[in-house]
């Protein structure tokens, strides 16, 4: 019972973080039609910056209870880099996707060294902040409260994005642009503002994801390239461009990884790629994606 709970709890926690990054990837793909390899770099940047932010907060005497809001805030602040990167990507919107992919690959390489420059090559850890939040007891099982808070935060963000996309005017315009770019532009959508804000939102989702995970895991320079493949798996399983797909995909990947690690560690990533390939064979567009031509 406890073992199963640990797998589910760990898996859902991982899924919550993965969902944030994958949601950013989906937003950007949906509107700009660019698959952003640098999403993992944003995630790692969020993680490193989160460590620094909490350390500043400690130095400034902020009470520990507020560390979670500090982390989220630090992720949002990092969104400031979004418009600049979008301005760079703007140069290749009309080009072949090989160039778009390569441009984001160039960003992956550059971010790797930006992180190394500011935070050094050694993995960084954020003391034992997570345990400050204590643990929760639920019948026979017990888990860290921090992880539960992150899961809740992720659910709130997911609901927030859902409401934003469905209920607000900007959300409707965004979906219209994703659906039919030419028509939306012809009807007067300001493409520049739209693209810049979507990309910034995508960036923030990535950086917040990284910031939230850092109290439970070390931030390292391998983080960006490792996370990219996992979030790719998520969006491929769920279907490129679909938010619901990101959610379901993240749950599948998160739970499968947790299960594989505890039962047969060799299978960890292998299992995930196998699911990806199986999904692509039988449902080429992913579980919630639109049919590909």
């Amino acid at each position: 019972m406890t073992a199963l709970f640990d797998i589910v709890f760990g898996g859902v926690f991982h899924a919550a973080v993965l969902f944030l990054v994958a949601a950013g990837l989906q937003l950007v793909f949906g509107v700009q039609k660019i698959v952003n390899l640098a999403c993992g770099s944003f995630y790692a940047l969020g993680a490193y910056f989160g460590i620094s932010a909490v350390n500043w907060a400690i130095a400034a005497g902020v009470p520990p209870v507020l560390f979670l809001p500090v982390l989220i805030l630090s992720g949002i602040v990092l969104g400031a880099i979004g418009p600049f990167i979008e301005a760079l990507l703007r140069t290749v919107y009309d080009r072949d996707e090989a160039f778009q992919l390569l441009l984001t690959f160039a960003l992956v390489l550059m971010f790797q060294d930006v992180l190394r420059y500011f935070w050094g090559a050694n993995p960084q850890q954020l003391g034992d902040i997570a345990s400050l939040y204590g643990s929760i007891q639920l019948g026979a099982v017990k888990g860290p409260a921090y992880n539960l808070l992150v899961i809740l935060a992720s659910i709130v963000i997911a609901l927030g994005i859902g409401a934003f996309l469905q209920k607000t005017n900007f959300g409707r315009i965004l979906r219209a642009t994703a659906e039919n770019r030419e028509m939306a532009l012809a009807l007067g959508v300001n493409a520049r503002v739209m693209y810049a804000s979507v990309f910034t939102l995508g960036t923030i989702l990535g950086t917040v994801g990284g910031a939230l995970v850092v109290p439970t895991a070390a931030a390292s320079l391998d983080m960006p390239v490792e996370l990219v493949v996992e979030s790719f798996a998520v969006v491929v399983i769920g279907g490129l461009g679909s938010m619901r797909g990101a959610l379901v995909g993240a749950l599948i990947v998160g739970l499968m990884r947790a299960a594989a690690i505890s039962w047969y560690a060799e299978l960890e990533m292998l299992a995930i790629y196998l699911v990806v390939i199986i999904v692509l064979v039988f449902r080429p567009a992913g579980l919630f994606g639109k049919a590909v031509e």
Partner: peptide
């Protein structure tokens, strides 16, 4: 296009994790 790219990437990483694990 992009689907070809992602699928080949997935296969590449499948082999990588086989080699690694």
């Amino acid at each position: 296009k992009i689907f070809f790219g992602i699928l080949t990437l997935a296969f590449g990483m499948l082999f990588h994790s086989f080699l690694f694990k």
